[in-house]
Write a protein that binds this DNA or RNA. Structure first.
Lengths: 199, 199
DNA sequence: GTCTATAGCACGATAGAC
DNA sequence: GTCTATCGTGCTATAGAC
């Protein structure tokens, strides 16, 4: 509790309420369909206040998805403990983040990326530069194969995210991390370190 | 009376032009973001004409995605020729359909399913009842495992579709069907017929 | 069959009162 | 810090003239 509780100058917790409502609404409807008015209603404040605190809708979205989780911290955990379990551990780490409250920001980004060009670019650059490169760089793979391996991992992870968090297809939507790590982990493992032409 | 093959005003195939424009626009922007006005502009007709031919926007969308490809015809081809190559053949069949012109309707459905509840339901029901069940029913699997196997296949195929057609992540976006069949095929194969807990 | 005009609504954003 | 009022825009959908 290093932070002082109670009121802070110029920033009462109305701001936090708006941010939380924005995260939830963006996650549920995507950038375009989530209106400032709906976010304000969910937060129990006036729509004008949202603009007052965050400026434009795009700025609010950026504040919403400026994730409180740094991939640079997670990647070492994925890589530690043996090259042969990287796939399973990657799935577990992914689920741990996305199943947690902060995961709603990620869902918002994924949902928005589908119907919105600049959010798609945001997601793609984040994936490539922050996540895939980090993992793949430390496995000393054939450099010529790295882009394909990374993209294949992205297809499986993105598909898992879509089905579990957006489309909510059962039983994947409610399956345990253990089940998913056991079934999907080997796929990631093969995409990363296995042969690229046969199982 | 040589009136029936007139190219421009008084055009009989205006309807087809609208349908084609709608397919392209829905595929590119999704249901919500694709406006009737934009579709009409792309087709070179008046927006009111779109309503005249197709009624509401939702009815137009349904006409757009009422696909000219019947899964019942494709599934036997996937299953024929040996149980061990089902995975690879499923990937090949999928790509053949989605890379073709009629695939734009599928892209439209996928894109819309993310930011729109009733289209998501449309897609989910189509997946479950038309595609997954058909494939999975004919491989005499443990009935208890069928839902999970089907959903796992869905994650990989949906992720492939997302990255190749929506996010356009390279090199998956432009990879050859051969490459993708060789790399992703084994994943599908394992989800369908392999052990569910190890690679 | 085709188009003009417009009703009716929701949105993002701003100005300015309290 | 919070809210009322409103501007300008874009949308679906309809009514009705040619």
């Amino acid at each position: 509790m290093a932070r002082r509780t109670g009121r802070r100058p110029g920033n009462p917790d109305t701001r936090e309420a708006i941010l939380a409502a924005a995260r939830a609404t963006f996650a549920e409807r995507g950038f375009d369909a989530a209106s400032i008015r709906a976010i304000a209603a969910a937060a129990g404040v006036d729509p004008a206040l949202v603009h007052h605190y965050f400026g434009t809708k795009e700025e609010l979205f950026r504040a919403t998805v400026s994730i409180p989780v740094d991939p640079a911290e997670l990647v070492p955990g994925v890589l530690a403990g043996g090259r042969d379990e990287v796939g399973e551990r990657l799935v577990r780490t992914f689920l741990a983040v996305w199943d947690s409250p902060v995961g709603t920001a990620a869902v918002a980004l994924l949902r928005s990326a589908v119907s919105n060009q600049w959010t798609a670019r945001l997601l793609r650059e984040f994936l490539v530069t922050q996540v895939l490169r980090r993992v793949v760089d430390q496995l000393d793979l054939d450099p010529a194969e790295v882009p394909l391996r990374g993209a294949l991992v992205a297809t499986q992870i993105a598909g898992l995210a879509m089905m579990r968090y957006v489309i909510r297809l059962e039983p994947v939507a409610t399956a345990s991390p253990d089940t998913l790590a056991a079934t999907i982990g080997p796929t990631i493992q093969r995409y990363l370190t296995g042969p690229l032409d046969a199982g």
